[in-house]
Amino acid sequence: MTAFPTVATLSRLGATLIVAFMLAGCAAAPDPKDADAVAEYEEVNDPAEPTNRAFFEINLALDKVILKPIAFAYKEYLPDFVQSSINSLLNNLRSPIIFFNDVLQGEFKRAGTTLLRFVINSTIGIGGLHDQAAKWDLEYHNEDFGQTLAKWGMPEGPYVMLPILGPSNPRDAVGLAVDFLLDPLNLWLANTNRDEFIFARTGLRAVDQRARHYDALQDMEESSLDFYAAIRSLYRQRRADEINQGKGSANMPAPGLSKNSISPTPWDGEEASRDE
């Protein structure tokens, strides 16, 4: 098994990252005597913030000239059924990796669903263009090696803005690399010198995902005060939700519940805030 081109691509990316961190400016550490400030610094967990912000700006600029216009044309001008077929096809191609991660997480029922979906959609679903399995109540779910590492107890580490690839952290960056390298289709394409198909698939996935989140990202960019900080928070929350498979919201911190003075029950806030 020689997957040289893929490895070469990844090691180039790795080298870029290492250089980035060597150049990394660090966020000013808080005064260790100020407990609130320390707690906040740990909650933000973004020690390379200046560098991350620089990459965020570059990513945004690239998005504006390349990915965003393509995604806009894709969602506006392609018929809905074509978009949904492409999405189904891409999801179906991910099945081996999803199955692999379902198994590694000990989620055998979900692994079974993934396997059944792959068999049904690859045949009756015309190579994955049609999501017939979902119509038979076998709903799609995603998994990745970053989530598997989380289930195994690996901490996420500090927030990292990857060039081009976007928001991440060491755990998810490793996950991304492992999923990419173990993907059977990618391996086969690499070994048969069909790297252009790997790029085509990756590019199509990027356009598909960008188009799906187009409106939400637009709204967030318009309404947030600090888009970088909002994206950082949203990325972490989404990942936590995916890792918990959507069962975590009861344990989230939220207004009006904690007993301390900053988070009173909402009615204290209503009364007190206006006349204090």
């Binding site: 906040e40 005060l225 970088y228 928070s233 929350q237 939700d241 989230m252 939220a254």
Partner: peptide
């Protein structure tokens, strides 16, 4: 939030992302 038969929403969580938490990060950063 429930108090004395009155109800008020304290957070909206869309696909696992909380409106209040996101605003807290956004405003806190500023």
């Amino acid at each position: 939030g429930v108090k004395d038969q009155t109800h008020k929403i304290v957070d909206v969580i869309v696909e696992g992302t909380s409106m209040s938490t996101t605003l807290r990060s956004d405003f806190g950063s500023i």
